[in-house]
Computed example of a mutant assay.
Amino acid sequence: MTGNAVGTGVPLIGVLGSLTVSVRGRPVVPTASRLRTMLAVLALAAGEPVPIGRLAAAVWGDDPPQDVRRTTQVYVARLRRLLGAELIRTVPAGYALMVEPDNVDARLFVRLVDAAARATEPDTERALLVAALALWRGDPFQDARSAWLDRVEAPRLVDRRLAALERRIELDLADPSPALVAELQGLTARYPLRERFWAS
């Protein structure tokens, strides 16, 4: 993740693995699982409005509280106390976490992969893919799980990770190494249906 927010009040947020949040260099991860889920959903939008309905679907699924709007307000108030009141803005459509996309690892990952796809030099493309893949620390949303995240967001991110990994391996095959062979063996065992790993 980029470090341009280190030492400022802008949080650095990681969702590609367990949830990590750092404000002014201090970890401030919520302890309550539903708060972690709400923060993950807000972070994925990175400055864009998130409707209350989407937050409710992610946090409570098919068992919402009786007063969704009021309960959401209570949860947002708790996040504001944790992160800083100015970082979560109330907007007509719902709420927005006021961070730059590059301060959220999932958004930075997507930007780097998109930049790699536009690169005209193989070395540049590979460097961007390596930087993007290095952001992953495990399965996304490990401790901020919800049926909505598992169904909507996690598969999209995992598919993009595997596609980026496949492309990085294609580039590495120009000069294969024993480490690459071992990596491919592990990947074909873990993802037997990904034909491009077998083709490599």
Rank of each mutant, 00 (worst) to 15 (best):
F109Q: 11
M98V: 13
R34C: 03
A117R: 14
V74G: 10
E125S: 14
L79R: 03
R54E: 12
Q66C: 02
R89Q: 15
R111W: 04
M98Y: 03
A96T: 11
G25W: 03
E86S: 15
L108A: 14
E48W: 00
D67V: 09
R80E: 14
R36Q: 09
A32W: 00
R81V: 00
V23R: 06
L135N: 08
L129N: 13
V130N: 06
P49D: 07
R34D: 15
L87T: 07
V130I: 10
A93C: 07
T72V: 13
R26S: 10
P27H: 05
L87Y: 02
L39N: 01
E48P: 00
P51V: 02
E121P: 00
D114E: 15
F109A: 13
R126F: 06
A127S: 12
R69D: 11
A96I: 13
A46W: 04
L128T: 07
W60P: 10
T37R: 02
A43I: 08
A132L: 10
G25D: 07
A93W: 05
A58V: 07
F109C: 13
P92C: 14
Y75A: 13
L39P: 01
A132M: 06
V130G: 03
G53P: 00
L97C: 08
V23G: 01
G25T: 11
A46R: 12
A117W: 09
W60V: 11
A85S: 12
P101R: 06
G53Q: 04
R24F: 04
T71R: 11
G84M: 03
L135Q: 14
A127C: 02
A134S: 15
L97M: 08
A46S: 15
S33M: 03
V130D: 11
R111N: 09
Y75D: 11
D67Y: 05
I88D: 08
A85V: 11
D123S: 14
G61D: 12
N103S: 14
A85F: 03
S22D: 09
G94K: 12
T120N: 05
A40E: 10
L79V: 10
E100Q: 15
Q73T: 12
P122M: 03
D63F: 05
L128Q: 15
R26P: 00
A93M: 13
A106R: 09
T90E: 14
L82G: 07
V41Q: 07
R126E: 14
T90Y: 05
A57R: 08
T72P: 02
A116F: 01
L83Y: 03
R36N: 07
R36T: 10
R54W: 00
P101F: 03
A46C: 09
T124G: 02
T72D: 04
T71S: 12
S22E: 15
A93N: 07
P92R: 15
R80P: 01
E121V: 12
L44R: 13
A131L: 04
V104H: 05
V104C: 04
T37G: 07
G25Q: 05
L128I: 10
P92V: 11
